[in-house]
Nucleic acid binder design. Structure first.
Length: 607
DNA sequence: CTAGGGTTAG
């Protein structure tokens, strides 16, 4: 069919090119070679062409090389072109910005060849070839991908020198670059603010930059400014805004964004739908996420994975498993990310045998080489099930070295299941490898607490103080009347703090009457015991719940978002509160959801 | 020949 006709065209062109050499007519040969390359686009087969270019002596011809690099996503062709640019007999006076741009673009777009793009840029500058306005976006994108701030700044300087820094594309990519390189956001923001005219790409670059850095509040704020400025967001802007909502766990805001998308008639492409699904699932409304998913006309592996992960987070492991099976029946092959979602679903729901089965089918049937994340899921799964020895054996058998994440999982399982000596020794090696990682110390300190070695425990605290390390304070977020409130333990910054503290005390009395016993013995992963003893009742979570009980209508569900894992005392207290005050309480943890209802939690105390 | 976006273990 079409391929056939292209082949014919090529054969015919090759004939002409050959004729060109025969008569010694370089010009004709060049022309023929160019049309030949044009025709080759669809076939992407360059091997014969390489030979022909050499035979015709066109390897140094910039037009031919440019074309060669441009016609295909085939990196072999690009490598071939760049090899001539770098070859010792290269006549760089022949090469222009266009040739470099073409090759740089190809490298900048790939996952791991961005270094080559930068090398070509350096070569270009070294040859004295002036970049043009197309060069900068390519190069800056590569700098962004690699986090190369200082090179990015040099490139910026060059753009200024040649007068291209006011070009909208260049400026937007510059913002993107500064956002992607550590320490550059503020500068990006100043570039953004100084722009005389901002288009939707500028706004998206800046908002997306904030989101990537975890500055979701700033992202949302900037989106508000965008509306005030009257700029029209597109679907790409909205993806970033939604992912800010996801990060914050701000369901109300997310819902508002959804209605905004509808109202403004922003095109809901697959990526935007995926972002919506992810937002609803991670903000606590899996049902809605499922509904959106079911209504999507075209689904990608990302859509399937997002719902699977969503179900997993809500402890609905067996549904996640069926969805995964449905995906396969539908003809979508799982990739390594889909398996991470699936395995973590098994892990969170205690489906140990299923998880083991999938892990082996992943490697055998799908030939996916397990990554550290897959091993991590397996270790976590075994540890949660209390199979610490099996987990240890599994880690020894792994084909990759366990990373600190896996070792910390083991340590906390050791603590929970009484393997204290083992936990202590792993913990110590963790500390010597990562002396500035706070949770390594907290884990060891918790082990000493369990061993009743109070002096050693105190000593750890002193070491941390000496190193100037501070634990991440626990905080809890809640949305109320379009406001986001954030509580930290012992917080008194809120206007109504007196009422809230009175309410906390009242709740404590009611809970005691109902049989609640404060538990200061069980400590979870990142939480230090002393803080619990100090202020169990002042935990940010309890403050937020008290606030919600005070200021939301009776009977309405309460949704809160924690930045750490919920501690076991708060967990049992929240169960009591849900029953005493007849409220559904949805808590989003650092890694999953808890739905408290009638004195029980959806996680079945397994988390 | 140019820019901004989506799923990932604890």
């Amino acid at each position: 069919m079409q391929i056939q006709s292209i082949k014919t065209k090529i054969v015919r062109t090759v004939g002409v090119a050959g004729a060109g050499t025969g008569t010694g007519n370089k010009r004709a040969a060049e022309q023929s070679c160019l049309s030949l390359l044009e025709a080759c686009d669809a076939l992407a087969k360059f091997v014969q062409l390489q030979a022909r270019i050499l035979k015709l002596g066109l390897q140094n011809n910039p037009l031919v090389l440019t074309k060669f690099a441009a016609v295909s996503s085939d990196l072999d062709a690009v490598d071939y072109a760049s090899s001539f640019v770098f070859s010792s007999d290269a006549d760089y006076r022949l090469y222009d910005a266009f040739l470099f741009n073409t090759v740089i673009r190809a490298y900048a777009q790939t996952g791991d060849l961005k270094e080559k793009a930068l090398a070509l840029y350096n070569a270009m500058v070294g040859y004295g070839v002036s970049p043009n306005k197309f060069t900068y976006p390519f190069v800056l994108k590569a700098c962004a991908g690699l986090g190369r701030l200082s090179l990015g700044q040099t490139v910026h300087g060059s753009a200024v020198k040649f007068g291209f820094d006011d070009d909208a594309h260049v400026r937007n990519t510059m913002i993107h670059m500064y956002c992607c390189c550590g320490g550059g956001v503020e500068y990006a923001r100043s570039l953004f603010d100084e722009m005389p005219k901002r288009d939707s790409v500028s706004w998206s670059a800046m908002i997306g930059g904030y989101v990537r850095l975890g500055l979701s509040t700033e992202a949302v704020e900037l989106f508000r400014k965008m509306q005030i400025a009257g700029a029209r967001p597109d679907e790409i802007t909205m993806v970033s805004v939604l992912s800010a909502c996801t990060d914050l766990g701000a369901l109300e805001l997310g819902k508002w964004v959804e209605s905004y998308i509808e109202r403004e008639g922003i095109q809901k492409n697959v990526e935007l739908c995926n972002a919506l699904i992810d937002m609803f699932a991670k903000c606590g409304d899996v049902e809605k996420a499922m509904k959106l998913f079911r209504n999507m006309s075209r689904k990608t592996i990302v859509s399937w994975t997002s719902v699977t992960v969503g179900l997993a987070m809500h402890g609905r492991g067996s549904e996640a498993v069926s969805l995964f099976e449905e995906m396969i029946r539908n003809g979508t092959a799982p990739d390594n990310v889909a398996f991470i979602g699936l395995l973590s679903a098994c892990s969170h729901s205690g489906l140990v045998e299923k998880g083991k089965g999938y892990f082996s089918s992943m490697t055998k049937e799908y030939q996916i080489v397990p990554k550290i994340e897959h091993y991590g899921c397996m270790v976590d799964m075994l540890c949660r099930a209390g199979l610490v020895n099996e987990a240890m054996a599994f880690v020894r058998k792994m084909s990759i070295e366990p990373n600190p994440v896996i070792l910390r999982t083991l340590v906390s399982a050791c603590r929970a299941h009484g393997e204290l000596k083992l936990g202590e020794s792993i913990s110590k090696s963790l500390i010597s490898n990562e002396p500035m990682h706070e949770s390594n110390y907290v884990l060891l300190s918790n082990i000493y607490a369990k061993m009743s070695l109070w002096e050693k425990k105190t000593k750890i605290r002193q070491i941390m103080d000496k190193k100037g390390m501070r634990k991440t304070p626990g905080s809890t977020m809640i949305e109320l009347n379009n406001e986001i409130y954030e509580f930290v333990a012992g917080d008194k910054s809120l206007k109504q703090y007196k009422e809230v503290y009175e309410m906390v005390d009242e709740i404590a009395r009611e809970m005691k009457r109902a049989g609640y016993v404060p538990s200061t013995t069980e400590v979870l992963l990142d939480i230090d015991e002393e803080d619990k003893e100090d202020a169990l009742n002042r935990h940010s979570e309890k403050l937020a719940i008290a606030f919600a009980l005070l200021y939301t209508p009776p009977g309405t569900p309460i949704r809160i978002v924690k930045n750490l894992r919920v501690c076991s005392d708060c967990h049992s207290a929240t169960k009591f509160i849900s029953r005493i005050y007849s409220r559904e309480i949805v808590v989003r943890d650092r890694n999953r959801f808890h739905l408290f209802k009638d004195g029980l939690c959806s996680c079945k105390d397994f988390w």
